[in-house]
C-alpha cells in the first residue's frame, strides 16, 4: 500500500494544477504580503526598502483608515447581514406560498439585478439616487422633500445599492434550503398549534441553520470587497463619507502612489474578513 512510486504516480496528474495554483495564486499572495512590509511607491522613489511594521503602525494612527474600517463594518452589517440576508430569506419564504406566475416574475426581476455587471448596476443606482435622479422625481411627484442622496446619506445609498444587487443570491440559497424542510415536520407543528412566528423560530430557522451560515459567509466576504459599485456611485465621497476599505486601499496605492501602504491595508482587510469567517464557522459547527 505504501509504495512510494505508486503514490508518486497518483500525485502526478494533480501536479500541473498544483504548480499552476502555486504560480498564479500563492505566488502573488506571497509577493503581496512581502510588499506590505516595504515602502514601495509607484512614483517619486529611487529604491524601495524593507520597513517592517511601519505601514501597519501608520494605518492604526491614521484617522482616515479608522474611518474606512468603521464604514466597512456599517456597510457590511447594513447591506449584507441585515439587508441581503434578511430580505433574501423573506423573499424566499414568501415565494414558497406565492402562485407560479408571481414566483416566476419576482424571481426573474430579482435575479436580473444579480446578473448585471457591477459597473452597470452602479451606474443604474447612481442615476436613481442622483440629484436629478428617479428617486427625487418620484418624491417630487408625491410632494415629499427631495435631496441629493449621494451627498447627504452616501453610505446608506451605497448600502441600498448593494442590497438591491445582492439579495438574489441569498434568495436562491434560502429557496433551496426551505424546499429541503420535510412537509411533515411543519404540518406536525401546525397541528400542535404553533403559529407563524413560532414555527419560523423553532422549526424553520434551526433546520436551515447551515444554509444561513454558508450564506452569511459568502455574502459578507463578497460585501467586504465591493469596490466597483461604490466607486461608480460616489468614489468614496463626499469627503470620505462612503470610503470603505477597498476604496481607501485603492486611493492609497494608486492615487497617492503608496503601493506598500495600500498593500498593508489589503492585508488588514483580509484580517477583517477572516474574523467574520471564524464567527460563521463557529455558527456552522454548533449542532442543533
Amino acid at each position: 500500500m505504501s509504495d512510494p512510486r505508486r503514490s508518486l504516480a497518483r500525485a502526478l496528474p494533480v501536479a500541473p494544477a498544483v504548480v499552476l495554483l502555486l504560480l498564479f495564486l500563492a505566488g502573488p499572495i506571497a509577493y503581496c504580503a512581502y510588499i506590505a512590509f516595504t515602502d514601495l511607491q509607484l512614483t517619486g522613489q529611487a529604491h524601495s526598502s524593507f520597513v517592517g511594521f511601519a505601514n501597519f503602525r501608520t494605518a492604526f494612527g491614521d484617522e482616515a483608515f479608522l474611518n474606512a474600517v468603521w464604514l466597512t463594518l456599517v456597510f457590511t452589517v447594513v447591506s449584507s447581514l441585515v439587508g441581503q440576508n434578511t430580505l433574501g430569506l423573506a423573499l424566499a419564504a414568501l415565494m414558497q406560498r406565492a402562485s407560479k406566475p408571481v414566483r416566476t416574475l419576482t424571481g426573474g426581476v430579482v435575479i436580473t439585478a444579480w446578473v448585471l455587471p457591477e459597473v452597470v448596476a452602479g451606474f443604474l443606482l447612481y442615476a436613481f439616487f442622483r440629484k436629478e435622479g428617479t428617486l427625487n422625481a418620484i418624491l417630487d411627484a408625491l410632494h415629499l422633500p427631495s435631496q441629493n442622496w449621494l451627498y447627504t446619506l452616501p453610505i446608506l445609498a451605497v448600502s441600498f445599492a448593494n442590497v438591491w444587487r445582492g439579495t438574489a443570491f441569498s434568495m436562491l440559497v434560502y429557496s433551496a434550503a426551505l424546499n429541503e424542510i420535510p412537509k411533515e415536520i411543519t404540518e406536525a407543528a401546525e397541528v400542535d398549534g404553533a403559529g407563524g412566528p413560532r414555527r419560523l423560530w423553532h422549526i424553520t430557522l434551526p433546520m436551515i441553520r447551515r444554509s444561513i451560515g454558508t450564506n452569511l459567509m459568502l455574502n459578507t466576504l463578497q460585501t467586504l470587497s465591493v469596490f466597483g459599485l461604490i466607486w461608480v456611485m460616489t468614489r468614496g465621497g463626499p469627503g470620505n463619507k462612503s470610503q470603505t476599505l477597498p476604496l481607501f486601499m485603492y486611493e492609497q496605492a494608486f492615487q497617492n502612489s503608496m503601493i506598500g501602504y495600500g498593500t498593508a491595508v489589503a492585508l488588514l482587510l483580509l484580517l477583517v474578513g477572516s474574523v467574520f469567517s471564524v464567527m460563521y464557522m463557529r455558527l456552522l459547527r454548533t449542532e442543533v
Binding site: 511607491q41 509607484l42 512614483t43 517619486g44 522613489q45 529611487a46 502612489s257
Partner: peptide, 11 residues
C-alpha cells in the same frame, strides 16, 4: 506636474 516624481523613480 508629475515628471520630477517619475524621474526620481528612474522611469
Amino acid at each position: 506636474f508629475l515628471i520630477n516624481s517619475d524621474i526620481t523613480s528612474g522611469y
